[in-house]
Nucleic acid binder design. Structure first.
Length: 419
RNA sequence: GGGGGAAUGUCCCGAGUGGCAAAGGGGGGGGACUGUAAAUCCCCUGCUGUAAUGGCUUCGUAGGUUCGAGUCCUACUUCCCCCA
């Protein structure tokens, strides 16, 4: 992919900021993006009630597209989610009910409004749901209209299928059809919206190429595919997994404070890359930030955290998160941004033990785990490191908050408030 | 329809053929060193618990043999491979 000299603003930006892994017809796409409005889409399946940071690079691509004067389409996979994408999976996942899928779509939708401008204008973003067309096909009609264009020989060669077979993991016929459905999506959007480009993660390459070829073969129209590199951290971890599990984008599943923390904890070597991908800062400013020596790189991480949090949760939430972080980590004081867990005094009328507090704070799954943390020196109550499972009476509550400050490790702090 | 194999600590991979709470990895968690980073080193990783050579629950499911079963027997379930 050494398509060094792109002419279009869109592809130049995409290239410079590190979004491009593969493109199907780079030169042609470059011309299209330079001479007119390109309509492009990315599909998102509704497998959870929120998207997570793993989706963020895709969302940002749509944002870059719109910024460059083109038209983004968000495709909600209401129909494809019913089947389940087999890519990168060892086996069939439990199937979601229609109601679950509908629920997930409704809670996911809002995220896109933070990043894109929706409307009826020529470059306004649109949102569609592939259930609208996929669920209308009859089986025989679908096979006759689209099945004829796919050979099993070829489908078996795609990684998503091949890996399963090589690993001797079963792949059901249901999953096998996912690829066709995604190809039909692209064709449908090409016809109804003049969509010419599908983007996605590198694992979607096979699915995307199939759609491109379907359009070129059936409608003899230009169609393109573009994939992003697989995002991992510099030390090889899959991006987005942290102490608290997945990094959700919905505020009710991961607070702005925690979201800010996620970005603040970026590895040194990733700061520049993430600034380019996940903020709108100009490239020269990013170059300056990532060149900061030694511990000063922390300032770049704060900028990253501020910008990323602001884009998703708004300026107020971002500055509160930043101020909270300053209180907690730089001044060692309390912050209203810390999560609060309310517990009942009734069960323990006199006092709570350290282990009980840790468990109730949600920082340990069981009392045994909490005790191990204490034994390892990982627990502090009200900033006092605990080495034994002591009792804490309620007159030891922090006076201003009427709560215990429960800390596990360096970064996990919860206020436990008995009521 | 016939034959052969496989399911292990509910995150994953994977040893284990009568004494096993079950080797070893990975992942995860804690500590030390630092800069709320990485790398490195140490510890932990079934539940419960007066941290007891304690109790309880684990090796696909259900029974059986045995003082004792992940390990042996029977049936069943699911998956893989080969033959038809």
């Amino acid at each position: 992919m050494s398509d060094a000299a792109f002419q279009s603003e869109f592809l130049k930006t995409m290239q410079a900021r590190g979004y491009i892994h593969q493109i199907t017809h780079p030169a042609e796409l470059d011309v299209a993006a330079r001479t007119g409005v390109v309509t492009a889409y990315i599909g998102f399946d509704a497998t959870a009630s929120s998207l997570h940071v793993g989706h963020l690079i895709q969302i940002m691509m749509l944002r870059r597209l719109q910024q460059a004067g083109h038209k983004p389409i968000v495709l909600m996979g209401g129909g494809t989610t019913k089947v389940g994408d087999p890519t990168d999976k060892d086996g069939q996942r439990p199937l979601l009910t229609d109601a679950q899928i509908q629920g997930n779509i409704s809670t996911i939708k809002g995220t896109f409004q933070k990043f894109l401008t929706f409307g009826d204008g020529p470059t306004d973003a649109a949102m569609v749901n592939n259930d609208d067309w996929l669920s209308k096909f009859g089986y025989v009609q679908f096979l006759r209209d689209y099945g004829v264009h796919f050979t099993i020989n070829r489908m078996l060669a795609f990684d998503s299928v091949k890996n399963r077979l090589e690993r001797e993991q079963p792949m059901t016929f249901l999953e096998f059809n996912y690829m066709l459905m995604q190809s039909v999506d692209f064709l449908e959007l090409a016809r109804s919206h003049g969509c010419v480009l599908q983007m996605g993660g590198s694992d979607q390459w096979g699915n995307i190429v199939n759609g491109v070829e379907l359009i070129r073969r059936v409608d003899q129209k230009a169609a393109f595919g573009l994939t992003t590199p697989l995002l991992s951290t510099a030390s090889g971890q899959k991006m987005g997994k942290t102490v608290g599990g997945a990094v959700w984008l919905n505020a009710d599943m991961r607070s702005p404070y925690d979201y800010w923390q996620f970005w603040r904890n970026t590895e040194d070597a990733d700061v520049g890359r993430f600034l380019r991908l996940f903020t709108d800062l100009p490239l020269d400013e990013i170059a300056r930030l990532e060149a900061l020596p030694g511990a000063e790189i922390n300032d770049a991480k704060k900028v990253l955290a501020n910008e990323a949090t602001r884009m998703l949760h708004g300026a107020d939430a971002a500055s509160r998160a930043a101020a909270g972080a300053q209180d907690v980590f730089e001044r060692g004081t309390l912050s209203a941004e810390l999560p609060v867990v309310e517990v009942s005094k009734a069960e323990f009328p006199d006092a709570r033990t350290t282990a009980t507090l840790v468990k109730e704070a949600g920082l340990a799954a069981s009392l045994g785990e909490a005790r191990k943390l204490i034994a390892n020196g990982g627990v502090a109550i009200n900033d006092q490191r605990m080495t034994t499972d002591d009792k804490h009476t309620y007159d030891q509550l922090l006076p201003d908050l009427q709560a215990f400050k429960v800390q596990v490790g360096k970064k996990k702090i919860v206020l436990v408030k008995p009521t």
